[in-house]
């Protein structure tokens, strides 16, 4: 009887294993990454709230201290508007983290006016409305989703009229603002896990390549960002080594300076 039960258990185990194999993923445990080089697609730039979400899990963050309400100037140069637009969308994610409904609503309006400034206002109007409605209801998940949709719609509309470079500047503006806040939070309460979130060398290379392909945008802020990326790259491309507190401080100084440059007229 015991033997029968043992055999039965074994059979059930084998059957379960086979069932798992049938629907499960059969993949090699290791591949040669170098052989993929010709087929690798461009990196997708993470949203600021992907980083903020990971930061939140490391401990309580005083998001209100990072909320920015200053509307900033009105630029006429389209690359400057695009950079600012990315920054303002990132500010929206920060305001959501802080659950600051009034700032979120102001940001919804600001995003709309900036999008109009680069000729893609029509694609943003429904999202701006949805952001304001969701903020009124304190439905933060919907605000996050609409901010993502806003950025996506702006970039799609830009790509449709072959303004891909402006679209990349929107991503860059958001990434810079996200990195500024990340380094500020980690600088205030240092942890190795927090500093590790800066380990983004491929993203930096991606932005460097994109900026180098924009010689027509001959603006001081673009040159400053390009120089800063060259400075930051070796600080975060550390392989398995840990990123020390002084590096976090240094990157925070650089990104804060760039952030000021993005929201200030020359």
């Amino acid at each position: 009887m015991m033997l029968f039960i043992r055999d039965l258990k074994l059979s059930i185990g084998v059957l379960c294993g086979l069932a798992l194999c049938a629907d499960g993923a059969q993949a090699p445990q290791r591949i040669n990454i170098n052989q993929l080089s010709t087929t690798v697609e461009d990196v997708v730039v993470p949203l600021p709230n992907e980083i903020f979400g990971a930061l939140n899990k490391l401990g309580a963050v005083n998001w209100r201290a990072h909320v920015r309400t200053d509307k900033g100037p009105n630029f006429t140069e389209r690359p400057r508007i695009a950079l600012l637009l990315g920054t303002v969308i990132a500010d929206g994610f920060i305001a959501v983290q802080a659950e600051d409904a009034e700032t979120v609503k102001e940001i919804g309006q600001r995003v709309l006016s900036l999008a109009k400034g680069v000729g893609v206002g029509n694609s943003i109007t429904p999202h701006a409305k949805a952001i304001i409605e969701a903020a009124d209801k304190r439905n933060w998940n919907n605000v996050r989703r609409e901010l993502d949709r806003t950025q996506n719609s702006v970039q799609q509309a830009m790509n449709e009229v072959h303004d891909e470079k402006l679209s990349q500047l929107v991503s860059l503006g958001g990434w810079l603002r996200g990195t500024e806040v990340l380094t500020s939070v980690v600088n205030d309460h240092f942890s190795s896990d927090g500093a590790e979130l800066l380990h983004q060398p491929d993203l930096l290379s991606y932005f460097q390549k994109r900026l180098q392909a924009m010689p027509e945008f001959d603006l001081p802020i673009i040159h400053q960002i390009l120089d800063a990326l060259v400075e930051v790259k070796p600080l975060i491309d550390v392989g398995d080594r840990r990123i020390p507190p002084e590096t976090v401080k240094k990157i925070n100084e650089i990104t804060t300076r760039l952030g000021q440059g993005i929201v200030t007229k020359d």
Binding site: E41, K57, L58, Q200
Partner: peptide
């Protein structure tokens, strides 16, 4: 290629 963050 995708940037992923530990903690997420």
């Amino acid at each position: 290629r995708q940037q992923l963050f530990k903690g997420n």
